[in-house]
Simulated assay, not measured.
Amino acid sequence: MPIPPCAPDRVRRVACIGAGVIGGGWVAHFLARGYDVTAWDPAPDAETKLRRLVDAAWPALEQIGLAEGASPDRLTLAATLEEAVADAEFVQESAPEKLELKRSLLAQLDAAAPAGVVIASSTSGYPMTDMQTEATDPGRLLVGHPFNPPYLIPLVEVAGGEKTDPAAVEWASAFYKAAAKSVITMDRELPGFIANRLQEALWREALHMVANGEATVKDIDDSITEGPGLRWAFMGPCLTFALAGGDGGMGHMLDHFGPSLKSPWTRLEAPELDDSLRTAMVDGCDEAAAGRSIAQLVAERDQGVINVLRATGRLPEQRNEGGDK
């Protein structure tokens, strides 16, 4: 892999390939951080949906505080993939989660992007080793896995594949930090990465409870938002459990609660997603939404994230309107 054409903190133009929920969220984030963004998506209505998503996200981004010069006007929609990456200094791919599509698209991006430009995939689970097989220069391909919505949730997990140049991983991690993300740089590949594996375990147990009639969708959501989720907003599960051990910390907690690990509290294998379970999940979410539209729920979610970030000291109480503090 050639040396990237510019330093991570000197990037000014980003290309976002794929403009759905995740890709559009990346677009909003990069625009809010003052980048010029060129986006491409093959859907015929992609531009309309993308600009609508950015407009909906902008009030939340204004609350967080915009970088100097940040504006939705710095978004350009390209007619072709090649045009989108022609002058990009970083590329974020967010296509649908289909392995063959990812392989083909990353190979096309590798062929079209300027030499040395790092190309990151937003994949939620595929190892880069499985996706970089058709690229001529796989050394610049890596995973940059965000959480939804990327314009609010700080985390991005960075991981290379077997053929990824370690220098590309180092560069990408530095770039994401310069772009105001919280970065975990993984030293090895792990299907599902770190956060998704933890999230998936909780999700599978929730599906089992609904499938077996043990809890409703609302019960499950309330159990997190009114319980451990309040602690997880500022302290992870490991430190939280360590506090359960009192002055003895994690050691005492493990000695005391270790035997419960043999108890049948969780079922990590996913239940069969049959029509009955699917209906129960869909109906349960409709009931929990209580008539609120998806747009209303997104706005509530965004404001909730901002409130938690501010309450836990990760956002200042006040920001200068239209610029950094």
Rank of each mutant, 00 (worst) to 15 (best):
T133H: 00
A174D: 14
H145S: 06
L152E: 01
F147T: 04
W171M: 06
A174W: 12
P154D: 10
N148G: 11
A168V: 03
R140G: 01
P138N: 14
P146I: 11
P138G: 14
M131K: 07
A172Q: 07
P138W: 13
L141W: 01
V158H: 01
A135K: 09
N148E: 10
P150W: 04
L152W: 05
S173F: 05
P146A: 12
E162A: 15
V169W: 08
S173C: 13
P154Y: 07
G144C: 08
D165I: 08
V156Y: 01
P146R: 10
A172K: 06
P138H: 14
L155Q: 04
W171D: 01
S173R: 09
V158L: 10
G161D: 02
D137T: 12
W171K: 02
R140F: 00
A167M: 06
W171G: 00
G144V: 03
G139Q: 02
T136Q: 11
P146E: 12
T136W: 00
V143F: 04
E170W: 00
K163A: 15
A159D: 01
L141T: 08
R140V: 07
G161Q: 03
A167F: 06
S173I: 05
Y151P: 05
Y151I: 10
A168K: 02
T164L: 04
G144T: 07
L152F: 07
E162Y: 10
P146H: 10
G160L: 05
V169Q: 11
A172C: 11
P154I: 02
K163D: 13
R140Q: 06
L155H: 01
V156T: 07
A168R: 06
G161E: 01
Q132I: 09
P166K: 05
A135R: 10
V143P: 01
P149K: 05
T164G: 06
E157N: 08
L155G: 01
G144Q: 05
H145G: 06
P166G: 09
N148K: 08
A172I: 09
E134L: 15
S173Y: 04
I153S: 12
A174C: 12
E162V: 14
L152D: 02
R140A: 02
P138K: 14
V156A: 03
E134A: 14
P149T: 01
G139Y: 03
L141Y: 05
T133G: 00
S173G: 15
L142S: 13
R140S: 04
W171S: 03
H145W: 07
L142Y: 09
G144K: 04
A135H: 08
G160C: 01
W171Y: 15
H145A: 09
P149S: 04
R140C: 02
F147H: 12
A172Y: 04
K163P: 08
V156H: 03
A174P: 13
